Amino acid sequence: MSGAHTDLHAERGALRGEHAGRSRDPVIRIADIAWLEFDKPDLVRAEAFARAFGFGVALRSPQELHLRGTEAGAACVILRRGPRTRFAGAAFRAADEVDVLRLSDKLGVPVQRLPEPIGGLSVQLTDPSGNAVKVVAGMHELPAYPSQAPQVANTGCGDARINATVRPPRVPARVQRLGHLVLQSTTYRRTLDWYLDTLGMLVSDFLFFPGQRDRGPAMSFIRCDLGSVPADHHTLALALGPADRYVHSAYEVCDLDALAAGGEYLHDRGYVRSWGIGRHIQGSQLFDYWRDPDGFLVEHFADGDKFDNSLEPGWAPFTASGLAQWGPPATSDFLDTSPRAARHQLTSMLTALRHDNEFDLNRLIGLLKVAAS
């Protein structure tokens, strides 16, 4: 549908023959992302950062820590004690338990009961990049917590704040919910199609490496298909790269003041900002990226786009300067081009080029152009 995104949220729509961004007959259609799982060697240190970042604690034991937002539902991050820090997988929420049973039947995998503190049913899958993927339903629902109230704003359209001031305190930006997960894959196209065909997701935006549109997309922002009900611009994002890895995860806060004041709180306690504050192009979110004590990237966001299932994918070049409408330039830390990451990146590139996958020499050249553009 060429031109579908003109003046909307991307450069333009698809050309004839390009990826449609959706499956004709998915097995199920998931409702949302549920939680992420990580292994961490030091849960005390992890909890200190989590509280400063704005999470609540739903469960604590010597071996597990369940982190939650203010919205009702399940915990949005599960940390388990392990010998090293690693991303251990994602859980996606099915519309109901019938969909979990349907996945089990279609894919030939057993239905499992989740641990009692969580409740409900799950099926355990593995995506083509090797990531553990649970599809879950019927969990116990944690009650909602009080959330931060957005600041009342005086705008050019009217004055809502009279005889009052704005004084946001420097406190943790209270996390409301898990918004999205970003993954890198050496088998990007196969992994993308798996999520569309298996979980019924839709592509909101495709990005292609500079000068390589004819090779197909190199990144996709993927949302849930809720029919006419608007869904987050992306619940999952996938990018082609030299390693199969976690890139970052994002957690919603109420507004720009909460995001900014929460960032000051993190900075005052010695935590490291990776990139921000700014506003993205694809998804339009206000963003602020931080490194946790183990080096994993996490994002505060607010004010993201919502799309229903009528919108076709947008297409745009993948460039570092094209990641934000305003804000500071993308940092070398965020782009993984810093001296800290250089050795690991070089090793990943050499390893990927020696194996049969989608990351070939031409794609490497394209990726290098992204960081320089």
Rank of each mutant, 00 (worst) to 15 (best):
E37F: 02
G130E: 12
V111G: 02
A330E: 08
A90G: 06
A132T: 05
V135T: 11
Y265L: 06
K134H: 15
L353M: 08
L181H: 01
L183S: 04
F49P: 00
F221L: 15
A342C: 00
E312F: 08
R80V: 08
L43M: 08
R213H: 00
F359V: 13
T6C: 12
R81P: 00
P168L: 04
E358N: 01
A144I: 04
F307I: 15
M1N: 12
L65R: 07
A243N: 09
A48Q: 14
D356A: 11
A149P: 01
P242I: 10
V298E: 05
G156K: 04
R86W: 08
P83N: 15
S104R: 04
L266D: 03
H180K: 11
S321T: 14
R223L: 11
P143C: 12
H66T: 06
A72S: 05
R86T: 13
A239M: 11
R343M: 13
D225T: 14
L15H: 06
N309C: 13
S220A: 12
G262Q: 02
L311M: 13
G158P: 02
T235E: 04
T155C: 03
V152W: 01
P143V: 10
S2V: 15
N131M: 09
D105T: 12
D356Y: 05
D214C: 07
N362C: 09
D205P: 05
A90R: 01
G138V: 06
Q184N: 15
Q148A: 12
Q325K: 14
D336H: 10
V109R: 06
G179K: 11
L226C: 09
P172F: 10
G120R: 00
E37I: 09
A341S: 10
L178S: 00
R102G: 03
G262S: 06
R113I: 12
